[in-house]
Amino acid sequence: MAEPVVSEKTISLSKKDRIKVAWRTQFLQGSWNYERMQNGGWCYSIIPAINKLYEKKEDRAAAYQRHLEFFNTHPYVTSPILGVTLALEEERANGAPIDDAAIQGVKVGMMGPLAGVGDPVFWFTVRPMLGALGASLALGGNIVGPILFFILWNIIRLATIWYTQEFGYKAGNAITDDLSGGLLQMITRGASMMGMFVLGALIERWVNIDFQPAVSKIQQQKGAYIDWNSLPSGKAGIHEALSQQAAGRSLDKVKVTTLQDNLDELIPGLVPLLLTFLCMWLLKKNVSPIVIILGIFVVGILGHVVGLL
């Protein structure tokens, strides 16, 4: 502080510094704790920038301390907040009058609204969708399922982390106003529409309930089923049986209609849908998901024992 004239030379963060910070944000939640949540990870992430911007030990110590304050948001949308904070710290290091309260204010002001974007977009749309896509392949033992999930997810994630941090850094303070504006809201809305659409499809396809009880057994008329006794023997018989089946004849003399067949005539997937609604209702009544899951297993086992499922 002995220098009378403010130095012309300004300190700025290079792209390399910003990449270091972006790399470190991936460890944001490493020291997640019940007291100040992501504070340790936030400080850990911003350390390379602080060490670049501040030379003096007491300046650094003060910076570390102000970045160990409470922080919690969705891990990926931390990046735009970090970007803005980097811009602020850079100005401060260059002598701009930005105090601790201003920096803390930006962090707290952004983390709430952004968590409201990150959770529905990443946890409740992108991951369930990629997960369901990968899982539907994996159920058949196809290695493409897990690989597809892993690669697509990480491309989306890394791109989000890097580009939103850069966006925050370049926009600086201005981003805070931008956030309440249209774009982010549109992304959230679009993601929930898309998510709900796919959820509807997933419930129809992947919730399996099959009611076993037979509702009716009907003796069919001659000609409606394959008469196995009158088929020629050998290959010719197989050929005849297959062509009769293709022509719409049933395999057995007695046509069995199960409860499931009746329900499927209304719309396939009706029971899974009702089960999902029941779960939603229970969750809203604050029944723990674990209790519901265990309950469903009990119902599955009991239902199977009595011959219903």
């Binding site: 919730v207 969750l283 599955g300 239902g303």
Partner: peptide, 15 residues
């Protein structure tokens, strides 16, 4: 059988 139905809980949470 329970495993086939339990999937619904996850969907319900998301919805």
């Amino acid at each position: 059988i329970g495993g086939g139905m339990v999937v619904a809980v996850g969907y319900a949470m998301v919805i």
